[in-house]
Design a protein around this nucleic acid. Structure first.
Lengths: 200, 200
DNA sequence: CCCCGAGGTTGACAGCGTCAACCATGGTGC
DNA sequence: GCACCATGGTTGACGCTGTCAACCTCGGGG
């Protein structure tokens, strides 16, 4: 009676694995720990997942899904810059709220992609949302049809870079305070606006 | 006679560890493997490094040094945009040439910083180079004295983001080719120039 | 000459992923 | 009703890892 519904062990494994990752990072995940927490033998999870890599791939796949949903939940804005900013804020919000999950998707050494098609598909979906939305914005703003997906890449890079730097203990290393990070975000949105304003 | 100069085991350990990391990534590094490769007992390295974390910290510290030197080796350019571009290219060049070392510095879960002061100091040095140079450029270009280190952060984020995205198997996941990445880099420099051009 | 510390050794332990064998259980073909 | 087999659980073992502990073996300083 550990609050587990007893039956669907496979699902319980994923749940528990996610919990472990969320508190200790991906390197803290071990199938044996999952089994121990669930009160089953160390080989029980192995009946549902061929290897550690496979359970990780499934978790990453779900995380990409969650991330995509988080980005999609943003209310549409009229002004394209407000739109960009709203999407950017949602992006950074996710990275801040779930730093370990964010690292899981982007920073960690992922299991080799071709062997885990579902993970790849979900990742594609999340990226597609980013690319099309950012691309549309860039397109609406920039001069005629110049490969908007490249501009999407630029904006995405900036967002990912900021999120990623924030995750490193840069604040501790450099003499920066939390507030500086907030101001850096402001500055970034301002610079992006400037970068995409129509040429005079 | 394995080409090792026999004597300075500590140095040989670091060398060998770096070699392992460069071919297999940080998670492939094990002190026992280092010892095996050097033909010594599994505890020999342990006489020179208190733990795996400590040898890793030293390697990271040296990598930050190398990275800083790589950035510094760039020839000075007259035009600030050419300057930015040159520095940016050196940055991305390093990330491409030594992807695993780059991950080591920025992506991997580093050993807790406060316990490894030398690593922290070297990281600071590398960051300082980035911040001051990028900051100077932003300052020369942007309107009066508006916190150039924030602009440095913006530029750094963009560079790091692009490098990081390039490292993920995004090219495989998305339907992108190598050439697209090159063009994204071009686009990024163009957009950065636009973002920092003086306001009309 | 004795001692001791620096740097090497072997041995052990626990935790990990994984392979193999075994076993209960429930549903199907006959 | 019974043989059969797949499913999902078990225990046990292997080799890998980091790390602790004890031991050995020098070379130099009191």
């Amino acid at each position: 009676m550990t609050a587990k519904p007893e039956k669907p062990l496979r699902e319980a494994c994923i749940e528990e694995a996610l919990a472990i990752i969320e508190q200790g990072g991906v390197e803290a995940l071990s199938l044996r720990a999952v089994a121990r927490r669930l009160g089953v033998s160390h080989q029980a999870p192995y009946k549902h997942f061929p290897s550690r890599e496979h359970i990780l791939a499934e978790i990453v796949a779900r995380t990409f899904d969650e991330f995509a949903a988080h980005l999609d939940a943003r209310p549409a804005a009229a002004d394209p810059f407000a739109d960009l900013r709203a999407l950017g804020e949602r992006y950074l919000d996710y990275a801040r709220r779930y730093p370990l999950k964010y690292r899981l998707m982007f920073n960690a050494a992922l299991p080799p992609l071709p062997e885990h098609p579902e993970m790849m598909r979900n990742a594609e979906r999340a990226f597609a949302i980013l690319r099309t939305r950012l691309g549309q914005m860039a397109l609406r703003q920039a001069p005629g049809g110049a490969a908007p997906h490249l501009d999407a890449m630029v904006i995405w890079s900036a967002l990912h870079g900021l999120a990623s730097i924030e995750h490193a203990d840069v604040l501790a290393t450099l003499d920066m305070e939390r507030a500086d990070m907030q101001r850096a975000e402001e500055r970034m949105f301002a610079r992006l606006s400037a970068a995409f304003r129509p040429e005079e």
